[in-house]
């Protein structure tokens, strides 16, 4: 996993609540057996005029010109700003892979769906929770400027605006540690293999039916 320390980038404002994972990456792209290549079909139904299929040349498809990802000023954006309950719906990690493959490193929203929130950390995508008021404020600052970038400092747990204003955010200590160092969860868990085996031995005595098949 790529390390996340400090990141500065263009903010893309997606002014919607309850953005679901079907909207982030539609089902026809889930047939892939790979983790990469989902970027061009991120927000596919909102981004393009006609539904696409896997394997087609997406650069030739007709765009919905007013959708944020298609607007000139947001090209190269790496921080997504959205409303409450972002990532609701299916558990598909393809939603996170699509966001990271496109180039997003951070999302800012007032709240997230649980499974999406979890999946993000496993892929170096930092989901930041800021209050509705602050999110509102960032939306209006973007609207009243020509170019808008934010700096995210994970170590200090701060979002820094172009004027130097800072907003603190919370992040679970273990997840922060893993993101800062780009650590692989599985390797960490396997350090406790003896504990897992000991648990299994005890449990087999208490509830042998759980280990039958």
């Amino acid at each position: 996993m790529e390390k996340f320390t400090v990141h500065k980038g263009i903010v893309v404002p997606l002014d919607r609540a309850n953005v679901d994972t079907d909207a982030i990456i539609p089902k026809q792209y889930l047939k892939s057996v790979k983790k990469s290549g989902f970027g061009p079909t991120l927000f596919d139904d909102w981004r393009y005029k006609v539904a696409g299929e896997p394997g087609m040349d997406h650069s030739k498809r007709e765009l919905h010109k007013d959708f944020v990802l298609n607007q000139a000023r947001y090209q190269g954006g790496s921080i997504l700003l959205a409303r409450e309950n972002f990532g609701c719906g299916s558990s598909r990690e393809h939603a996170v892979w699509a966001l990271t493959d496109y180039g997003f490193r951070t999302i800012i929203a007032p709240s997230y769906a649980d499974i999406f929130f979890n999946n993000s950390f496993k892929n170096g995508l930092l989901p930041i929770v800021l209050s509705e008021q602050i999110v509102d404020k960032i939306f209006s600052e973007i609207a009243s400027s020509d170019a808008y970038e934010l700096t995210i400092d994970l170590e200090k747990q701060e979002v820094i605006t172009p004027t130097g204003e800072t907003f603190a955010f919370e992040v679970d200590a273990f997840r922060k540690h893993c993101m800062l160092n780009g650590l692989d969860d599985i390797g960490l868990t396997l350090q406790h293999a003896d504990d897992i085996r000991a648990y299994e031995e005890k449990r087999k005595q208490e509830a042998p039916w759980l280990f039958a098949s």
Binding site: E93, V96, K122, D185, L190, I196
Partner: peptide
Amino acid sequence: AHGIGTSEVEHVMATQCLI
């Protein structure tokens, strides 16, 4: 019982556990 993402699928396959 609950849903998990693919990274966690791999984690459960390799360790029988979830964080």
